[in-house]
Design a protein around this nucleic acid. Structure first.
Length: 194
DNA sequence: GTTGGGATGTACT
DNA sequence: GTACATCCCAACC
């Protein structure tokens, strides 16, 4: 399996959000890797996007990695959960793609171990759920998506993609309705609401 | 040093 | 449908 190269991550953010669908996220695990297909993403267009953490060029310890090179990990904490993003845009342009849902392809036993008592489709059909299922924590903040223990390889490209408004960002003016959410049609691992 | 808020998930009624 | 867990971190003393 071929790891995605830098040129892939250098695409415009909306293109990257679409292109990431179908690719395989690989999480190294001591007893066998977890491989999961990306089936839902959301684009956050940095300085011009009121819904983005980096809106207005806001540069803090939390958003710092978004200002760096594309293809790196932006993790942040949401209440009791960690959310996983792919940094995009050139250096100085704080954009990112949130990974909202994945479909486990390999390593189901380790996914199940990380999500005890949770039924199959509920294991990874949400941004906080998938990070728990794959054992992704704040430790990976700033990590490269081209290296162990978390990287992305070429997966599937033949899929039907739909777009719609992003989830969970009320009170952000017209940015609330931008169709920056992308997902694979009819995939049962896509988070359901709206 | 302290306060408050959030790109969520789960349990409960 | 509502409640709340419990964490990073920004903003302000």
């Amino acid at each position: 399996m071929k790891r995605l190269d830098l040129a892939f991550y250098e695409q415009p953010t909306l293109d990257l959000a679409r292109s990431l669908l179908g690719q395989y996220l690989v999480r190294r695990h001591p007893e066998g890797d977890i491989i999961a297909k990306i089936v839902e993403t959301e684009a956050y267009l940095g300085a011009i996007d009121r819904a983005a953490h980096s809106f207005g060029g806001r540069r803090t310890k939390r958003t710092e990695v978004m200002f760096g090179k594309p293809g790196h990990v932006y993790t942040y904490q949401m209440h009791t959960h960690t959310l996983l993003n792919v940094v995009s845009g050139p250096v100085g342009t704080p954009e990112a793609v949130l990974i909202r849902a994945v479909e486990p392809i390999q390593g189901h036993e380790w996914v199940a171990a990380n999500r005890p008592g949770v039924k199959r489709y509920d294991q990874t059909n949400g941004p906080g759920k998938l990070t728990k299922a794959l054992g992704i924590t704040m430790d990976l903040y700033g990590h490269s998506f081209q290296q162990d223990p978390l990287y992305i390889v070429e997966g599937e490209t033949e899929m039907v993609i739909e777009a719609g408004p992003r989830i969970g960002i009320p009170n952000t003016g017209e940015a609330r309705d931008y169709p920056y959410r992308f997902f694979e049609r009819d995939n049962p691992y896509v988070s359901k609401f709206r």
